[in-house]
Nucleic acid binder design. Structure first.
Length: 430
RNA sequence: GCCCCCAUCGUCUAGUGGCCUAGGACACCACCCUUUCAAGGUGGCGGCACGGGUUCGAAUCCCGUUGGGGGUGCCA
């Protein structure tokens, strides 16, 4: 049973809950999965939590206490102590307004048997009688967490290391409730560049955000798996392989830094592995976005598909795709003035442009190979290598000095449009 | 303060006493390829936190120190 639990103060906001469901669906965990309990809303369970606390009072494992934070502070000051030393343990207080229910921490030691980190021993004397029910009667997270686990028959609790210190408290609760504790596994924390655990406030942690930026779910999942666990063999490997090889006991003990650069490298690899059709489908939201860089209705799937193998190696994220081929869908290329000036400052550039236009007007087969050899001979006549000779044409047609392979792009652009742009460029130069 | 966890290149890591002159990946640099930019190929840079033990032998075991992190709420 997988229970997604985030007890953030925003948890009862429906749109937030939906956000979690969407994000999980993205990485392959469906809300329809029988093992998925869905985002947990504490309010639905509160009565059970309170009942459990009361039961603990009945069995002598918990007691009422009327001391406020100020009372505790005053007493500590007077006695030179700190924390709460079980002062109300034997006062036999009953329920009353403002009274909390505290757990009676037993003597001895608590050993947490952790599948990742081994046995961790805690001295119960160092754990104070913690609150179960607040003065207003509401249950605290720790209690709610345990009670839900008990009721749901949870057998394995896998969570971040930040919870390890509170695990003895939870285990004592399981014991007091007469239920065998679950198998624990505390996973290493994910940290930011400051080596602090990543938090919603400071860091980018929402899966939805990475999806929105054009990361592939497979890349995300694969990368995440390499933090805290090492795949056998290559780092990049399919989920089925990872799933089969994964052992909880192989999980690392040290925190790992979430490196966007490495995620990007994974993403680029995954993008290159896509077939043209898969790539098109994955990119579609960005290709048809209002800010794609060209009028949406001029987008042409056939052109994109033909260019896909040349676009893929130039993308780190799916969001990069429109920018690579936008000039093919624009009525007029957006000219980078600096590039234009620089390229046409070269002595033979204008002549190459003029001659190429002429040659392209009469080229018999409009295909990349023919276009290339035509320009190659023109370049040779001017003692220019292809790398130099193609520059004026590229700038004239795409407006930029960089981009996908030129002749393949001209092939899909077509003779008429290519010549039109070459003529425009020529005119602009005069 | 007290408790708990952790410690190999900048980062993610391999490594469980000899195979380690410490291997890989990302990043970075160089070169190659090349129709620009990418991608790809080759090479380079770069690390066992420190101090004591144990041992014929230690990145690996033990102790300590230092450093980092987490917890310690009538937060979740």
């Amino acid at each position: 049973m997988l229970r997604i639990e985030d007890t953030d103060e925003d948890r009862n906001r429906p749109e937030w809950t939906q956000g979690i469901i969407d994000a999980l669906a993205w990485i392959g965990i469906s809300a329809d999965d029988p093992h998925f309990e869905g985002p947990y809303l504490q309010s639905d369970y509160t009565q059970q939590h309170i009942a459990a606390a009361l039961q603990l009072v009945d069995t002598g494992n918990a007691y009422y206490c009327d001391m406020t934070a100020a009372d505790i502070e005053a007493r500590n000051k007077a006695e030179g102590s700190q924390g709460y030393a079980g002062w109300s343990r034997d006062r036999d207080l009953g329920p009353g307004p403002g009274r909390v229910v505290r757990f009676r921490v037993p003597e001895g030691t608590t050993i947490v048997r952790d599948q990742v980190r081994g046995d961790v021993e805690f001295d119960n004397a160092l754990i104070e009688d913690f609150v179960l029910l607040r003065g207003n009667g509401s249950p605290v997270f720790l209690l709610a967490n345990v009670i839900d686990d008990v009721h749901m028959g949870i057998t394995h609790v896998l969570r971040a290391e930040e919870h390890l210190s509170n695990t003895p408290k939870q285990q004592m609760l399981w014991d007091a409730l007469g239920s065998p504790p679950p198998v624990w596994g505390h996973l290493p924390l994910l940290v930011n560049e400051q080596r602090k655990k990543i938090s919603k406030r400071r860091d980018k942690v929402a899966l939805e955000q990475y999806r929105a930026e054009g990361f592939l779910a497979d890349a995300m999942v694969n990368y995440l798996m390499t933090l805290g666990w090492t795949p056998k063999g290559e780092e990049i490997q399919p989920w089925a392989q990872i799933e089969g090889d994964f052992r909880l006991s192989d999980v690392h003990l040290s925190p790992a830094f979430f490196d966007l650069k490495k995620l990007s490298a994974f993403n680029g690899d995954y993008i290159r592995m896509l077939s043209p059709t898969e790539f098109l489908e994955a990119c579609r939201p960005w290709l048809l976005a209002p800010d794609a860089g060209y009028p949406i209705d001029s987008f042409d799937e056939t052109v994109f598909l033909a260019m896909a193998p040349h676009i893929q190696p130039r993308c780190v994220t799916l969001a990069d795709a429109p920018g690579v081929i936008d000039f093919l869908f624009l009525a007029e290329p957006v000219v980078d003035r600096e590039a234009w000036t620089k390229v046409f400052a070269a002595s033979e550039a204008v002549a190459v442009l003029r001659e190429t236009k002429a040659a392209y007007e009469s080229v018999s087969d409009w295909n990349a190979e023919a276009l290339k050899s035509a320009l190659e001979s023109i370049g040779a006549a001017h003692d220019l290598k292809l790398g130099k000779a193609q520059a004026p044409i590229r700038v004239a047609v795409s407006g930029r000095t960089v981009g996908p392979p030129l002749f393949e792009a001209l092939e899909v652009l077509g003779r008429d449009e290519t010549l039109r742009r070459l003529r425009n460029a020529e005119a602009a130069l005069n």
